[in-house]
């Protein structure tokens, strides 16, 4: 796989979330996953499973409790990916 960057993960997340939520506004790094996107926990967990496969990582469910914005999620994925190398 190509070198994974924080920005790359962020971009991918914004793309995937746009498709998933049909939001009528632009999703950015600061978008709140729960209050602004109203993404339910099942959709979020499914998206995370997809991302896990994409980056060959496992994201612990309990790590998600600190995730509020899209950037938080991207940071978490980046951190796990870096640690797994």
């Amino acid at each position: 796989m190509n070198e994974v960057t924080q920005e790359g993960i962020l971009k991918l997340l914004c793309q995937r979330l746009t498709g998933l939520t049909k939001a009528d506004f632009e999703i950015t790094s600061e978008t709140n996953l729960i209050t602004q996107l109203a993404i339910d926990s099942i959709k979020l967990l499914n998206l995370i499973m997809e991302i896990e496969d994409n980056f060959d990582i496992s994201v612990p469910v309990n790590a998600l409790t600190d995730v509020i914005t899209v950037r938080d999620l991207a940071d978490l994925i980046y951190r796990i990916k870096s640690e797994s190398k």
Partner: peptide, 21 residues
């Protein structure tokens, strides 16, 4: 503990996650 879910009844997904650990 860290909680990691594998896809329901999916042995390949379980194996993938064990390997990643």
């Amino acid at each position: 503990a860290d909680i990691i879910r594998f896809r329901h009844n999916d042995k390949d997904d379980l194996e993938k996650r064990l390997r990643r650990l």
